[in-house]
């Protein structure tokens, strides 16, 4: 039986949102082709801030011709301005069973993190999309912008729950996203990354992703130091597969090594794709952790 969605009141806390209002996400340069927004795009045109000149080419907007230069030099040049465009934010929270399994589910932190990032993005008039995933990815919100949309976005988040027998297939979700051919933006994957296919499958899928990426890894202390002892049959909450172990100091040491290697591999993978990695402890206060991460008031991706 799949766990239900997290109640709205638990997820949508006005105090929590208010504490995040001063945070922002900065992308070094936004891809061209988007709507007007607060971000600097690669498009040179309709903005107000002068950047450069270039020669006229047929088809250029005649309104950009600098007639003063033409008068002085007799040649046609175009004035180029920085164009202010929005930053598409693609939120991919993990809604697999493992995110809802424990008494303090990781999904609570995941969805609150998603809501925090969405709130920041919406307040900057950025386009925000919601693509939750488990075995498959689905499109809940294709595009939403403006501060007024925060409540609507929160309601979308509050309705998320794991599908029946939902496992984790991040690679399939990423491929589906790539196939959607969305405008380049910021892709935020919020998950525990416990994909049975492993990071190799994710690595392959990431090759087709053109977005800037931010991975938010949800961890808890028991991931690194499980409180297990004796002869155990471990049952995977998603797949139901069993693993029989006899917990000994040696086995625990090997587990710790394996888990640490997993984290190192995940960090290397994100780094390879020039993305960012946030590691949030679900048993710690989220606001405090975000304030630490957004130490300068802005998170640069």
């Amino acid at each position: 039986m799949s766990p239900g969605p997290i109640p709205f009141d638990t997820l949508f806390d006005p105090g929590f949102l208010a504490s995040l209002s001063h945070l922002s996400i900065t992308v070094q340069r936004v891809a061209a082709g988007g709507r007007f927004g607060d971000r600097l795009s690669k498009d040179l045109g309709a903005g107000i801030e002068f950047r450069d000149y270039r020669g006229y080419s047929p088809g250029d907007d005649p309104r950009a011709i600098d007639w003063n230069i033409y008068r002085r030099l007799g040649k046609v040049f175009l004035r180029l301005y920085e164009e202010q465009q929005d930053l598409p934010l693609y939120l991919m929270p993990d809604v697999s069973t493992s995110m809802f399994h424990e008494p303090e589910p990781r999904a609570l932190t995941a969805l609150r993190t998603a809501l925090a990032l969405a709130t920041i993005s919406l307040s900057h008039h950025d386009s925000t999309a919601l693509f939750p995933f488990a075995e498959k990815m689905e499109m809940r919100v294709k595009s939403m912008s403006g501060k007024a949309s925060t409540m609507a976005f929160a309601e979308h988040l509050a309705r998320l729950s794991p599908p029946a027998d939902a496992g984790t297939n991040l690679s399939a979700a990423l491929r589906r996203l790539a196939d959607m051919n969305l405008r380049r933006g910021l892709l935020v994957v919020i998950s525990d990354f416990f994909d049975p296919a492993g990071l190799d499958a994710v690595r392959d899928a990431l090759r087709s992703i053109r977005h800037r990426m931010l991975f938010v890894q949800l961890v808890r202390p028991s991931d690194a130091e499980p409180d297990l002892d004796g002869d155990l049959r471990l049952l995977d909450c998603e797949t139901g597969e069993a693993a029989q172990i006899t917990v000994t100091p040696h086995v625990m040491e090997r587990y710790r090594e394996t888990y640490a290697q997993f984290n190192r591999d995940l960090a290397a993978l994100v780094k390879y794709h020039h993305g960012g990695l946030l590691r949030l402890d679900v048993e710690q206060d989220l606001v405090t952790q975000l304030n630490t991460l957004f130490a300068a008031g802005s998170l640069v991706v």
Partner: peptide, 16 residues
Amino acid sequence: YRDVTVVTTLFWKQVT
């Protein structure tokens, strides 16, 4: 064995 349900057996399978 004593049954314990965990969020993943990914790492245990690699260990044992």
